[in-house]
């Protein structure tokens, strides 16, 4: 259900471009207005979601992490997995964001003959996820050649490294191959493994199809259906400098790529893709485990009205003295 729905949703986006650009000639709408609107939705949506998350009180620091917490001097403290200081937290967070450390600990449960339950390590999701996210990032950074003028040297270096094997012309980028392979792997994993297929929803398939279609259309545009890249850069630089122009003669494949990207950007803040910002707000990752050293007052604690002993004594001092009960203040 979710699979077919997502497939047809992405197909519909492509059909919309054919109708809008090819038939109705709405180049300005698809080349300028929709991208701007999507970009604004992206920024405002992300800020809105993060602020909304920020307003939720943080619970007690979660001590059940994967390492030994700081305790007695002769017990070895795991400084990264169970950090005590902010520096430790930063290191743990950086490793999580850059290397997906918690996914590395992924396990597979199997029922063997016996019957015996056994757990083994599986690294495939970690590897596929890492390949996917890193190539996505590199492709995104390379795309800044379309948005910066003059193009900074680091981007040119990245292009040269990415095309290191100098296969064909235009040069084949290795990241393009790995990216499409990784998206395919992540998709097949959802449909082939029964348990994962069972919990997969349209919200899981749609981003995969969308990103797959973005990669597919980009690869088609670069290697097969050539369009006027110089014209495209005029369009993108027009967007960047707020003086939009829509040059003639840019192929439909570019508008398909662009609408799919716009859809991704607009969809981002309202989808699971928000994990890009959410990972930084994960309580099990961003809180130092210093429960025993630093007092943590729950923000939602109800203000309890207390009546201390001193106040009690003030109220009843005379009566207490009269019956001979010792008092602290005379």
């Amino acid at each position: 259900m979710g699979l077919l729905f997502s497939f047809f949703a992405v197909t519909a986006l492509i059909v919309i471009v054919f109708i809008g650009v090819q038939a109705a000639h709405l180049h300005y709408l698809f080349g300028v207005i929709i991208p701007y609107a999507a970009f604004l939705t992206f920024i405002i949506g992300i800020i809105y979601r993060v602020v909304k998350w920020g307003r939720i009180p943080v619970p007690f620091r979660i001590p059940t992490t994967a390492g030994q917490e700081k305790s007695l001097p002769w017990i070895k403290h795991n400084k990264i997995d169970n950090p005590f200081t902010s520096l430790g937290v930063i290191v743990r967070m950086a490793l999580e964001v850059l290397l997906f450390r918690s996914l590395f600990r992924n396990t597979k449960t199997e029922l063997r003959d016996g019957p015996k339950l056994s757990y083994g390590s599986t690294k495939w999701l970690w590897l596929g996820g890492l390949a996917f996210h890193w190539t996505f990032l590199i492709i995104l950074i390379r795309h800044f050649r379309l948005f910066l003028e003059p193009v900074p040297i680091p981007i040119e270096i990245l292009e040269a490294l990415d095309g290191f094997f100098q296969v064909g012309a235009p040069v084949l980028y290795i990241t393009d191959l790995i990216f499409l392979g990784a998206v395919t792997f992540l998709f097949l994993r959802r449909v082939i493994i029964p348990q994962i297929r069972y919990i997969s929803l349209a919200a899981d398939y749609f981003p995969l199809f969308l990103i797959g279609a973005i990669g597919g259309s980009g690869v088609l545009m670069r290697y097969f259906l050539k369009t006027d890249v110089v014209g495209i850069k005029q369009l993108t630089m027009g967007l960047i400098t707020f003086s939009p122009v829509v040059p003639q003669g840019i192929g439909i494949i570019f508008y398909i790529h662009l609408l799919l990207v716009s859809a991704l950007f607009a969809y981002f803040p309202m989808s699971k893709l928000m994990h890009m910002a959410g990972v930084f707000l994960s309580p099990t990752r961003n809180l130092a485990n210093n429960n025993r050293a630093v007092r943590h007052v729950n923000p939602w604690n109800y203000p309890v009205k207390v009546h201390t002993y001193e106040e009690y004594e003030d109220d009843f001092r005379d009566k207490m003295k009269a019956v001979g009960i010792p008092v602290e203040k005379e």
């Binding site: 970009f39 992206f42 920024i43 992300i46 800020i47 993060v50 602020v51 920020g54 307003r55 939720i56 009180p57 943080v58 800044f144 948005f147 910066l148 003028e149 630089m237 960047i240 400098t241 707020f242 910002a277 930084f280 707000l281 923000p299």
Partner: peptide, 26 residues
């Protein structure tokens, strides 16, 4: 907002990154 300082720094980094091309081209 709780931990407002840290969250706002994070958001400023995000806005800075997306605004970079616009600033760069001036």
């Amino acid at each position: 907002m709780y931990n407002a300082g840290k969250i706002i720094i994070g958001l400023l980094i995000f806005v800075g990154l997306v605004a970079f091309p616009f600033v760069y081209s001036g």
